[in-house]
Amino acid sequence: MKYLSALAATLFALAIWQGIVWITGLPKFILPGPALVAETWWQNRWLIAEHTWITAVEVVIGLAFGTVLGVVTALQLANSRAAQVLVQPMLVFTQALPVFALAPLLTLWLGYGLWSKVAMAVLIIYFPITSSFFDGLMRTPAGYLDLARTMQASKRSILWHIRIPAALPSLASGMRLAAVYAPIGAVIGEWVGSSQGLGYLMLLANGRAKTDLMFAAMLTLGLFSILLHLIVRRATARMAGEMR
């Protein structure tokens, strides 16, 4: 049923797309139809696969670093009043800045290759991971803490055995968000400066009026993001308490 409705929605979207192409009669370098995009995609499948691989590596490394960094930050924040006072406002402020503006700088600092894109992905997912896990750590049900105190548990033991497990569902939702954001970060990094990756391919195709290839690359990125989201969702199901 779930797959059936997903299929129906996809067909519906394709129909609207094709409909717009027919009604407006736009030339194919402005708006290519689904059939042409599919054909281009198939002809360029190895090229697209190669660039997808590059982007995927950046995203996965970015996700891993961002998650570790976010988890460590959240634990530090939860453990120290001083850290909350000093670091938390800074975190919120950085979130209010358009991190995209940093992309050229990152290329300058970290070079043209992989690491400037990883850094961009990390920057984008760091805040959702940190804040969701931190919120979870601070919202431990008071009754659990009372119980642990009457059992003479140390602060460290309470953190390890009660606060962290109680916060795992929050961390899981942060990671699921991150799975959708991280590819955007990597692609922005590629736009600013790179010679490979889906972002680069999109920019290249756009510049040469190969709009069909641009669409093919963009849809591939979309599919990749959805796939990544599903994988992360599955991987975090136990954390989120959805499996028993």
Binding site: Q152, A153, I162, A166, G241
Partner: peptide, 21 residues
Amino acid sequence: DDLLLPWATVAQNISLGARLR
């Protein structure tokens, strides 16, 4: 509120005190 930890089994919940200490 029974204050049972939802992620732990019945047996683990019963021996929570020793585990915490």
